[in-house]
């Protein structure tokens, strides 16, 4: 009898931990293009992200129209000419932390993480694998990463006249603070 109670308690306890998910609706993703002619920076503070601690599955979603730029014309070019936000309004990433066992989600501190998965921009999906950091805090966690993408990989065509204004490699910065998801 005692064993059964313990067994049930164990199942309940571990399934409780397993069900733990973290999320945010206010995450940050930005990109930066540097050329001798001009620097272009887009910022999005409305990134939605969910991390399932049990499986290491992590999802990011952004609305392309929520990126903000220093100049209104940059925003217009970005949405209308490059990523075609009317046709393809969202970008997503679906992937997994591959070194999940290295991260102790119940112990505050910084951990290195490698995330692998599918990044969809402009309707084109590519497999990527990028390093990042996860910091466990008292009330949640932060996840950060910085990596390079090439616009041409996502069929983003840059006309000759603008080619000198936009870098061949764009730096993407991810910085999200997540809190436990209400069940």
């Amino acid at each position: 009898m005692k064993t059964i109670v313990l067994f049930i308690a164990f199942i309940l306890l571990t399934s409780g931990i397993n069900a733990q998910k973290f999320m945010t609706k206010n995450g940050y993703i930005g990109f930066y293009s540097h050329t001798p002619i001009e620097d272009i920076k887009g910022d999005n503070n409305q990134v939605a992200s969910i991390l399932d601690v049990a499986t290491g599955e992590i999802v990011f979603q952004v609305l392309m129209k929520s990126f903000k730029f220093e100049k209104a014309l940059m925003e217009e070019h970005f949405n209308e000419n490059y990523v075609e936000s009317e046709k393809i309004p969202k970008s997503t990433f679906k992937g997994k932390i591959v070194n999940l066992s290295d991260i102790n989600f119940s112990k505050p501190g910084g951990y290195k993480a490698t995330v692998e998965g599918e990044l969809s921009i402009h309707g084109i999906t590519k497999n990527i694998s990028e390093p990042g950091e996860i910091e466990i805090t008292a009330d949640g966690l932060s996840a950060r990463s910085k990596f390079i993408i090439v616009p041409e990989d996502y069929n983003i065509e840059i006309p000759g006249i603008m080619r000198e204004h936009i870098a061949k490699e764009i730096t993407v910065t991810v910085d999200v603070k997540m809190t436990p998801m209400a069940k």
Binding site: K25, A48, V62, L63, S66, K68, K90
Partner: peptide, 13 residues
């Protein structure tokens, strides 16, 4: 308004 993302509506600026 910049659209809907995961059931939520987003406004900017």
């Amino acid at each position: 308004c910049s659209g809907m993302l995961m059931q939520d509506i987003q406004l900017k600026n």
